[in-house]
Simulated assay, not measured.
Amino acid sequence: MAVLVTGATGSLGGWLCAELLRSTQATVRCLVRAGSQEDADQRLAARMQIFSPPSGRLIALLADIRRPDLGLRPAERDRLAEDSDRIIHCAAHVNLAADYDQLVHTNVGGTQNMIDFAQRRVALTGEPADLHYISTTAVFLNHHAAGLSHADESSVPTLATAGSLGYPRSKVLAETMLRQAADRGIIRLTIHRPGLVTADHATGRTSATSDLLVPVLRACVALGAIPTSAAEASGVDCIDSVARGIIHLALVADSVDRVFHHIQPAPFKIMDALQALSRAGYRLKPTPNDQWWGQVQGNLDNPAVRPIGIMSEIARYLLYADVDHPPPSYRADFTTAALTAVGIARPSLDAPFLDRLIKGLQEARVLPSLARHAASARTHGATG
């Protein structure tokens, strides 16, 4: 079996490749954007070095989903199309502060190029590929305003359910294009929607750029303050659990024409993560939410504060649990049952896990040491 993966050098994409190597005997071919084949090999090797020794079953292919024919020569494209009976399309430009126009080239145009590639396979072999698309539960970020009480695997995303942010809107359009391609027999489609993807359960390691808990935690430590309340976030899970669920369900024969939500069944309390900062020894003053947000807006020149400050739309869902800003409510009953049927259980996002998350951020120097934090607090107190 051979699997073609896009986005392998990204946060979730690397985990998907690692899970494929661990759970299957598949050859994993990865489309990698780079200046040369040597650069592509090095990029993929650098991403995968945290997982295991190099594997001969993992192959980097110099390509670019943003270009027609994926940037491949016609003969290369055709050979790859003939061999790619299973595709995991994970590549995306993920930026919750970016406008749609900044994201469309990769998220929509790149998806159209993958559809064209799949159509070429049908022309060559007469057989559609199984395409597993990695979308996001954020396509339902605004579902309350669109009249839905919750979003489950049967809910249909629209631009209204996505809201105003460019990223979920681009993913809605990509999903729509893929469904239309499936209706035309070009692909056999499965949609996987992760939500807020946080740290590896075993080690606490996470991505400082894609884990949405990280900007909140960094800002709290930098400000020396935490909000007095926060929402219960529906749609959270750790990255190893998400990757394991996607790969195992991708291998199930009846996953075609299905949608899966890769999230914890129960909402995650954001305050639990903030309290883990205090357990780690950071001195943080409980501050009314509006005052805390005012501190954020007043410190946007601080690189530890700015990320959450420029994601104000997301911050309101994470931190403001009120009737004017109800957080989205996601359900995953069908997915949970499907995972149970193949023997996969989601791990608990409990206090020990959150303590590992904080420790991992400290070891990666995303959060300051307690000594640096105390020194910063003294300086802030002396000058404030």
Rank of each mutant, 00 (worst) to 15 (best):
P128G: 07
A208S: 15
K269E: 13
G35K: 03
Y133W: 10
G360M: 09
T190L: 08
P267H: 06
G147L: 02
A364M: 09
T203F: 08
G163W: 00
L354W: 03
A2R: 09
H89W: 06
G13N: 14
Q275M: 13
L124F: 00
I187C: 15
D301V: 06
D290V: 01
G109Y: 02
S55Q: 08
Y100C: 12
Q42Y: 00
A225S: 14
T379V: 14
T106C: 15
L61W: 00
A219W: 00
R356D: 06
G298R: 04
L277F: 08
D69Q: 02
P74R: 01
N107R: 08
D301C: 12
G298A: 12
R73K: 10
S170K: 08
H132S: 13
L319E: 03
A34E: 02
H201W: 03
G163S: 06
L249K: 09
W292A: 09
H144F: 00
I308E: 04
W292M: 08
G71I: 00
P53C: 08
L124K: 01
R279Y: 05
I247K: 13
T161C: 09
G163D: 03
A225G: 12
R179M: 10
D333M: 08
P328V: 01
P53I: 00
V214N: 13
A332T: 04
K285M: 12
S11R: 14
P326L: 03
D152H: 05
D254C: 07
A46S: 11
L148H: 06
I270V: 15
T190F: 05
A160L: 05
R77K: 04
L44Y: 01
L124A: 02
D116R: 00
L370N: 13
A382D: 09
G166V: 03
S329Q: 09
A45C: 06
N299K: 10
R33Y: 04
N289G: 14
T106N: 14
S84M: 06
N107F: 04
S255C: 14
E363N: 13
Y317D: 05
